[in-house]
Computed example of a mutant assay.
Amino acid sequence: MICRKCGSVLEEGQMSCPFCGESVASGMEGTKQKKVELKALAEVPDDKEKLLTELQRLKEYFLAIRGKYAVMEDLWLMQLKWQEPSLLHWALGGFLVTFAVYLMLYGAGLLPHVAMSFFFVLWGSITSVGYIRSGRIYEARKARIAEDIFEVENDVRNYYNQAADCFLPLDYSDPRVIGELIHGIETGTIKSFQDYRIN
């Protein structure tokens, strides 16, 4: 599990984060709720100076939860990297393990020459048990990551909805993105906020 506040990896069964003290149990309550609806966007300021002032204000506002954006990004990356177990890989691994065990037993004279069926039974057992177990671990971890993403995203959405006169879509509310936008407008590489959204 991941701490929703600081992003630290938590051991299974921990009730609070040992680093920041955030309660783990409080994060589980929102899993039965739906995703927080986003409020309507305010009008984008027409004047360049006013636009820059408002962007700077929003950047300062969203800096208070910059850690949650980082946690959400890490969780998305974890979700992409965590791959479903492959039956082919388990079959190959099971074959190698079974072959090594079979050679040891056969070399020690513990198996008669006709015990080739033992090889296939052992191979099938290792492959099926390993594949099923890794599949369960994958599904459990996938569900936990999805739950963590849901909780952190709802936290961000709640904070976003409290921003006064926010004309930035949620995807653009990360302070790093706002910083790039400010820099682009100041240097002239971005002519308008509408152009930036299209690109």
Rank of each mutant, 00 (worst) to 15 (best):
residue 87 L to E: 06
residue 156 V to H: 00
residue 180 E to N: 15
residue 113 H to T: 02
residue 196 Y to C: 00
residue 7 G to A: 06
residue 151 E to S: 11
residue 194 Q to L: 07
residue 93 G to R: 05
residue 9 V to H: 10
residue 197 R to T: 04
residue 72 M to F: 06
residue 46 D to Q: 15
residue 130 G to N: 02
residue 155 D to N: 08
residue 57 R to T: 08
residue 84 E to P: 00
residue 1 M to E: 12
residue 123 W to R: 05
residue 137 I to P: 07
residue 117 S to W: 13
residue 149 I to A: 12
residue 45 P to E: 04
residue 165 D to Y: 09
residue 152 V to H: 01
residue 23 S to I: 02
residue 185 I to G: 02
residue 165 D to G: 10
residue 81 K to S: 04
residue 12 E to C: 02
residue 15 M to T: 06
residue 181 L to H: 03
residue 65 I to L: 01
residue 67 G to H: 06
residue 61 Y to N: 03
residue 32 K to N: 13
residue 15 M to C: 00
residue 106 Y to I: 00
residue 117 S to C: 06
residue 129 V to Q: 10
residue 121 V to A: 15
residue 18 P to S: 10
residue 144 R to I: 13
residue 73 E to S: 13
residue 41 L to V: 06
residue 62 F to H: 11
residue 45 P to V: 02
residue 52 L to Y: 01
residue 78 M to F: 08
residue 23 S to N: 05
residue 70 A to I: 13
residue 155 D to P: 00
residue 165 D to N: 13
residue 15 M to Y: 05
residue 86 S to P: 11
residue 90 W to H: 14
residue 186 E to Y: 03
residue 21 G to W: 03
residue 149 I to T: 09
residue 179 G to A: 14
residue 145 I to W: 05
residue 110 L to F: 11
residue 151 E to Y: 14
residue 138 Y to M: 02
residue 173 S to K: 05
residue 196 Y to T: 04
residue 28 M to W: 15
residue 194 Q to N: 11
residue 58 L to W: 02
residue 59 K to W: 04
residue 152 V to T: 04
residue 151 E to R: 08
residue 31 T to I: 15
residue 111 L to F: 12
residue 121 V to C: 12
residue 5 K to L: 04
residue 58 L to S: 01
residue 137 I to Y: 13
residue 62 F to W: 09
residue 11 E to R: 14
residue 133 R to P: 00
residue 146 A to D: 15
residue 28 M to S: 10
residue 96 L to C: 12
residue 60 E to W: 01
residue 14 Q to Y: 12
residue 29 E to Q: 15
residue 93 G to L: 05
residue 40 A to F: 03
residue 58 L to G: 03
residue 5 K to S: 09
